[in-house]
């Protein structure tokens, strides 16, 4: 295949990856990596490198908007970034020594899990309980809403920290933002309101990806010829996605269809991984 053909195919694929990733909140990496490896037979290390770069672009771009709105809990994000960056560094180093077929299998498994989690209905009850650590670390905060500021408390800091460590390892190993895992850690374990957890998770993704990208970059896994169409495509797709106002009823359908597509892709990744074709 010639450079120009490959670039155009990746550009179009990445655009839809960015669009779907932003509509479902799963991020573009979930589609980019299977597209590059399964359909275009790109080495998975190159695919992960390109995906990481697109993750940094989309997360930083949308974080810029969210931070201004004042929903992001910057102290909480900063503290949890200790865990995600340390995990991401470990994950990136592990990726160097892990045979590519195991990376593909793990990718498939995480993909299915995240798709299922994105279907899960989120109901977080605000907790009145005040944790000692959360008070010391100044996590308890409020976010603006139509009915005025909503106060919330954060609990189970240690549990959330360890879950973030895991999310960081996955991000470094597989080159995805692992936003779904981060949101679960914050909603489920730390009882943070959904609006705050999604924006704060997004805020952390860029730094987490950068911590492993510096390792990938030095290993030569980040190829400019591949990364160029991926970054541009995903970013344009994400911008389009953020402009589309999704109604809650149709949003549910998008999620279900996306979960099915993602599961089929995931099974293919696992299948090819087991056969050693990746």
């Amino acid at each position: 295949m010639s450079v120009i053909e490959l670039t155009i195919i990746i550009l179009i694929g990445s655009y839809f990856a960015g669009l779907l990733g932003s509509l479902t909140g799963l991020g573009g990496g979930f589609i980019i990596i299977p597209l590059l490896t399964l359909a275009l037979h790109v080495n998975i290390h190159y695919a992960i490198g390109a995906s990481l770069i697109s993750v940094i672009a989309t997360s930083s771009g949308s974080a810029a908007a969210y931070v201004k709105e004042g929903i992001t809990n910057m102290r909480l994000g900063m503290f949890l970034e200790i865990a995600t960056t340390a995990g991401a560094m470990a994950g990136a180093i592990a990726a160097i020594y892990t045979p590519t077929q195991y990376i593909a299998i793990l990718f498939g498994l995480i993909l299915i899990t995240s798709a299922l989690m994105s279907l899960h209905k989120k109901t977080v009850q605000l907790t009145k309980h005040k944790s000692y650590l959360a008070q010391k670390l100044k996590f308890n905060s409020s976010y603006p809403s139509a009915e005025g500021p909503v106060e919330y408390n954060v609990i189970n800091v240690a549990g959330g920290f360890f879950a973030m460590l895991f999310a960081g390892v996955i991000s470094g190993l597989l080159g995805i933002g692992s936003g779904a895992l981060k949101v679960v850690a914050m909603d489920g374990i730390m009882r943070i309101p959904f609006k705050v957890s999604t924006t704060t998770s997004n805020f952390m993704i860029g730094v987490t990806a950068a911590a492993s990208a510096v390792v990938y970059l030095q290993r030569g896994y980040i190829d400019p010829g591949l990364s160029m169409p991926v970054v541009i495509g995903v970013l344009l797709g994400a911008v389009t996605g953020s402009k589309i106002l999704v109604q809650s009823s149709s949003s549910k359908w998008i999620r279900i269809i996306f979960a099915i597509v993602v599961s089929v892709v995931a099974v293919q990744m696992i299948y090819n991984g087991i056969l050693g074709k990746i």
Binding site: I53, S60, I222, S227
Partner: peptide
């Protein structure tokens, strides 16, 4: 790409 990777680090 290097500048892009540096962006969140500069943010920190």
């Amino acid at each position: 790409i290097i500048l892009l990777i540096a962006t969140p680090i500069i943010r920190v």
